[in-house]
């Protein structure tokens, strides 16, 4: 197995073009596990750790752009904790400190695991993902990028460059259910965002479908039901929000949990997340 160590994005794209079967390595918290289990044995690896230009966070008044090489530890620290607190919270739930020092947001998105911890918030915020190949760059909405369980619209030869999200004005929450209090794969998760300017609730649910679930009907109903002047919602409306969110989900039963519990759990955490958001601004 050959390993290429590019130091620039151009080199990375060239390396990928030269060895089309190569696997991109951007932290390896999933990929290396698969190698250790003997499930993957790529002919070549292009390791992105040394591509410095991929590791950055740019915050402007309207937007946040996060380089693909930004680690979970980076996401937990600095300005992002204030700007995208739910993303920081999601990053904090990933693995151990060692894992958070290695794993990256680009790796999380490109791996497209149903349990990817940063994905629900990115989906709730309609993140845009920039990819770079030999033909140049293109931008794909994350909802179109994630196509299935560990499947994406990333074309062969493309490197994930960054994700960009608009900066919504309002609170946001991330809640993740697992059978252990830390270092656990999500059994269910939810990102809830209160967009005060648009008077809109945005929510995405993790681990309850092949890709993060965006319960649009729940969003529509609760956005109507909230008293945006006093930032209040009735208990019935919040409960209904949770129920609709759960109804939209399509969880499975596996060795980690049951479909029934996952559906129940997203109902609970979607409601709690919303209630917390409302309490945050009230």
């Amino acid at each position: 197995m050959g390993v290429v160590l590019p130091t620039t994005l151009d080199e990375a794209v060239d390396a990928l073009a030269a060895t089309p079967d190569a696997q991109l390595l951007a932290g390896g918290t999933d990929f290396c596990v698969e190698v250790n289990f003997g499930l993957r044995r790529p002919a070549a690896v292009v390791a992105l750790r040394r591509v410095r230009e991929l590791r950055h966070v740019d915050v402007t008044p309207g937007e946040v752009v996060i380089g693909a090489g930004t680690t979970y530890a980076d996401l937990c620290a600095g300005r992002l904790r204030d700007v995208l607190p739910a993303l920081s919270a999601a990053a904090r739930t990933v693995g151990s400190p060692q894992i958070r020092n290695a794993g990256t947001i680009g790796g999380n998105v490109a791996t497209a695991s149903p349990a990817g911890d940063t994905l629900p918030l990115l989906v709730a915020l309609d993140a845009r993902v920039t990819l770079c190949g030999h033909e140049g760059e293109r931008e794909v909405p994350i909802g179109e990028l994630l196509t299935g369980v560990k499947r994406t619209a990333i074309a062969p030869g493309e490197v994930l460059v960054h994700v960009a999200v608009e900066r919504p004005h309002g609170p946001q929450q991330f809640l993740k259910v697992g059978t252990r209090n830390a270092m656990v794969i999500a059994v269910a998760s939810a990102a809830v965002v209160l967009d005060l300017d648009a008077r809109r609730v945005r929510v995405a649910l993790g681990s309850v479908g092949p890709v993060p679930v965006r319960p649009r009907l729940a969003e529509d109903e609760i956005s109507e039901a909230i008293d945006w002047v006093h930032l209040r919602a009735s208990d019935a409306a919040v409960a209904r929000f949770g129920e609709l969110a759960a109804q939209t989900s399509s969880p499975i039963t596996d060795h980690r949990s049951t479909a029934e519990y996952r559906r129940h759990a997203v109902q609970v955490i979607a409601s709690r997340g919303l209630r917390r958001c409302l309490a945050d601004v009230a």
């Binding site: 904090r92 929450q173 991330f174 697992g178 252990r180 209630r275």
Partner: peptide, 16 residues
């Protein structure tokens, strides 16, 4: 919050 059930997943509020 991390010292509550759910730990780092921040799932529980005081009343839960």
């Amino acid at each position: 919050m991390m010292s509550r059930p759910g730990g780092a997943g921040l799932t529980a509020d005081d009343g839960d």
